[in-house]
Design a protein around this nucleic acid. Structure first.
Lengths: 233, 233
DNA sequence: GTGACATAAAAGTCATACTTTTTAGCGGCG
DNA sequence: CGCCGCTAAAAAGTATGACTTTTATGTCAC
């Protein structure tokens, strides 16, 4: 589910990254490359490359004569998709899900407003298609199929915004939606009101109504926040 | 200005990263580690570690028997502070500044609203202090001093929001504000209206008025967007 | 007690040999 | 003539060992 093992490097990186983000090595811990090489039965070469990547994520800091130190949580590069995945797979999944949802609630309405201005006809078509797909799968325990359309819908909105920073959040949103469906209390069919809102957003974008698209998406966001008890009902 | 040379690795990474982001090696270009090692007069070891980091930023993709390929721009990890710095230093600085400003305009109002709820007394004090500092330096060509307070102000807001994703955008905002002051048409003193808005945001946060803090920050954002002609005047 | 110095520990760098994957070319076979 | 499979080579991946550089720490002299 996480990452396929294409090489030793990938495997070790994933294992170490997960170990650090889940707190197995709490901030301040010191690792030695030689020990890691032994622990994972790989050469120092591989460990060094992994450490360099971890360092580029600000997860660790490597200093001579002292070793590889785990940095404080506030320093993590929390926008790195791999860090997000590790944290979602680890212990503070709820916390992570919350902060990501808040981020979504800030970004997606603005992105929808921009999408209403910039979306290509093809993107409008795609948007409507995904919204209709959501409607079609919203009843009768088709949660997985619904999820696919939901993810695609939000991804199109972010891409259509024409802003590269927004577009790159597509993966993050996908992770959040997947996490919600799989690990949250999601035994029931999706909220019909939310489904309707998505259809209306698609209409607003197609109709070039930026204000309406933004406002409707804000309502979707409010729903997501309520689901996590971040907002009072 | 970019990064101090603490080691060969850092130097090569910076040089290669900049070369790629500025388009010296356009997407699709293929690099060979041996050639790079020669070009930078370092060992293959160093080059490989650099490539691994670049790969973790999704700037390149390394495949056996083919080499290191530069990936398409849409795949870049544009939230990586280093990528942002490289792009701001390179040729598409204006484009980068625009997308970052749009991101700010989405995030900061929400962050300010949350700050009004979560800010500690210490953060409220700091916020007021920075706002007053902005007032004090807003006249008489003290642009550098003003910038320091401006950056600090926005950083406190993002931190006070209590959301780690927002907090991590402090560096991004700092880069944008710095870029605007240094490379934009910024010969005049700051807009008095903007200064007043900052003071009012500080007041709103201290007064726990989330709605007002959000709305005021939205007005600041609108000003920033107008400055870059992203919004009609 | 303080400061200079020596020591050693750990990362950083390099060179080299070897392995694995994958592309591309070549030749055989239908 | 074309397609398939085999082979060979190219490039990254991995391992190892020797050596360099930085720097924390302890020691010794003052």
């Amino acid at each position: 589910m996480t990452t396929q093992a294409q090489g030793l490097h990938t495997h070790v990186l994933d294992a170490l990254g997960l170990a650090i983000t889940t707190g197995e090595y709490p901030p301040g811990s010191v690792l030695r490359t030689d020990e890691l090489a032994q622990r994972f039965s790989v050469s120092r070469t591989v460990v060094r490359e992994v450490v360099r990547v971890l360092e580029s994520m600000h997860l660790v800091e490597s200093r001579r004569r002292v070793g590889v130190t785990v940095r404080a949580t506030e320093q993590w590069n929390v926008y790195d998709p791999r860090v997000i995945r590790w944290r979602l797979a680890g212990t503070d999944r709820p916390r992570q899900l919350r902060s990501l949802t808040v981020l979504r609630s800030a970004v997606e309405p603005v992105a929808a407003g921009l999408a209403a201005v910039h979306a290509t006809p093809e993107q409008c078509r795609e948007l409507t298609e995904q919204a209709l797909g959501m409607v079609a799968t919203s009843r009768g325990r088709q949660l997985e199929a619904y999820l696919v359309h939901d993810i695609a819908f939000h991804r199109v909105v972010l891409n259509a915004s024409g802003n590269e920073m927004f577009a790159r959040l597509g993966d993050v949103v996908a992770e959040v939606l997947t996490g919600r469906t799989h690990h949250q209390v999601m035994f029931e069919d999706p909220d019909p009101a939310a489904v309707t809102l998505h259809v209306q957003v698609a209409e607003a974008v197609r109709g070039r109504d930026a204000v309406r698209a933004e406002e409707l998406t804000r309502q979707i966001a409010v729903g997501a926040l309520r689901e996590l008890d971040i907002l009072a009902p």
